[in-house]
Design a protein around this nucleic acid. Sequence first.
DNA 1: ATGAAAGCGCTAACAC
DNA 2: GTGTTAGCGCTTTCAT
Lengths: 342, 342
Amino acid sequence: MVISLKDVAERAGVSVKTVSNVVNGYRHVTPATRQRVQQVIDELGYRPNLTARHLRKGRTGIIALALPELGNPYFAELADAVISYAAGLDYIVLLDHTNGRRDQEVLFAQGFRARLIDGLILSPIELENEDLLARGHDAPLVLLGEREYEAPYDHIAIDNVTAARTATQHLLDLGRRRVAFIGARHGRARQTAHLRLRGWREVMAESAALEGDGHGLVATTDGYTREDGAQAMARLLDSGASPDAAFCYNDMVAIGAMRTLTERGLRVPEDVAVIGFDNIEDGRYCSASLTTIAPHKQGIAQAAVDALLARLDGGEEARHAEPRHVRPGFALVRRESTLGRP
Amino acid sequence: MVISLKDVAERAGVSVKTVSNVVNGYRHVTPATRQRVQQVIDELGYRPNLTARHLRKGRTGIIALALPELGNPYFAELADAVISYAAGLDYIVLLDHTNGRRDQEVLFAQGFRARLIDGLILSPIELENEDLLARGHDAPLVLLGEREYEAPYDHIAIDNVTAARTATQHLLDLGRRRVAFIGARHGRARQTAHLRLRGWREVMAESAALEGDGHGLVATTDGYTREDGAQAMARLLDSGASPDAAFCYNDMVAIGAMRTLTERGLRVPEDVAVIGFDNIEDGRYCSASLTTIAPHKQGIAQAAVDALLARLDGGEEARHAEPRHVRPGFALVRRESTLGRP
DNA sequence: ATGAAAGCGCTAACAC
DNA sequence: GTGTTAGCGCTTTCAT
């Protein structure tokens, strides 16, 4: 049988209000009453019905985190950070995945799970600006990741162009000249890959390492899996390119690319230096541990949750405050894959 | 402004019941009424308040999945499978992590988030039998993973001993004799590591490959990270052992162990063949791609969700039916790390 | 086929 | 300090 506040009240001979006060730690309750009520609560094994509380309060204390996929360790690690940080602030995180599909992302942006969640942190891949503008309600939304939108929402993302410049420069500093970029994407000008490609292109052009627009050194992929990286590197090599370094869209792509290099008898870093992006755990345990750009995941998680909760807990003004754009930091983590030539 | 059923009803000139009927796809509504109501719904952008619905129905359609950690790709991939499968059955999954700590696991088992979730799938690490017996309520619970309990709950786990035997036998079939086991744990007789260790020990003893109890070939770890695997292998080698193969508790440990082998100048598989457990994605992209035991993750996810929903949706009888013990299958996936000697 | 009204369990005004 | 009571928004008998 399910025990409600009322049952406890009757058994303890007090009103539901008093029981509620005890449950919620309200200060003005006489110790005697509190103790008696608490005893009945323990006896009966009463547990508050969160759903009822949520309905009454108009809030659930649940925020959703919609990520493309959990299979990518970067997102899994990020999810971990968000869940932990939010838990410390007494918020529950509902984790969802969109598979990076526009229809799913739109669903979330449109308020899927309305009033089950108080707000949403969304990491979009295919979502368009118009989808955001067409949002029919005002539940707080925080955008995560590198796509840029012209819509009034908080946005948390590291500076991808600068990060990509840092990565490329690092390769150049090693004395490498033919630095390939693995993981370009077709379409959508604002996509992350373009930002990273831009950083690469800028540095390459400035250092005069680039001839023409560098087409011969850029490999596109369909996605960002290890397999995509392996295939892209294979295509690049088959096309006759002979890079002495590679800046990869992310660590997964880099791991795949390194795999191909090894299979072709090319050594990392002696023949080809490789740098990734994301700093996923696996990278540290590759045959040549992977140098990478490490976005500050804790910082990203905290900024996202803080931005959301500021609107949630900040009253009416905060709810309609100017959108924040937060740029958490990043670091270059040097490992074996970019050691200098012996 | 927030739109409720009542608002729609007033605007459409019907009762809330009728609107509710339309929203829920109740059959007996005249097409004309349905259309008019639907139009108002679209106009006003009405979305049902799930919390209210949940309170009224006494069910939320949310099930919790409590895993030790998301940082381990095995759990991330499993979570992915559970979320997807449950979504197809119109259930929402609330993902939580326990960090493998007993107090957290107890919290979940005790009914943390009572009546926010309809049921729980828990993958325990440190939870004890008594914790389960002390459960003060009857919300459906499904246990996941290899620890065995004597408590009346559904349990989904592959046959670890047989799987471990398969892995060990594979190594022996390669002609290896000094097969190490990396990742034993102290304490708790029922823990997974013991089951896998038992499988190893049985096969080794049967083949007479084992001298004594094999202490010299068993390395314990504190956890199951890559770092644990790297250190354990280092200790083993430092102790003077010279294994020609290693069966590792899981892929993470195996990856760490391979890293140490490489650093010590030992080749995989030529000098030491390595096999892991879990079939995580990374394993395919190691310097020597990793041979592993692949638990049928889809099968595990489905069995767990099915078991839970059977009790949730099956009425009173189902709720108190005998506990199910499901043993999803597994497969040996051969890759480079156990290729035969050239 | 549609409406009226009760009530899920809780919190928060407002009394006393 | 504690009790009374009115809903939060929805579904669901029970009428009509």
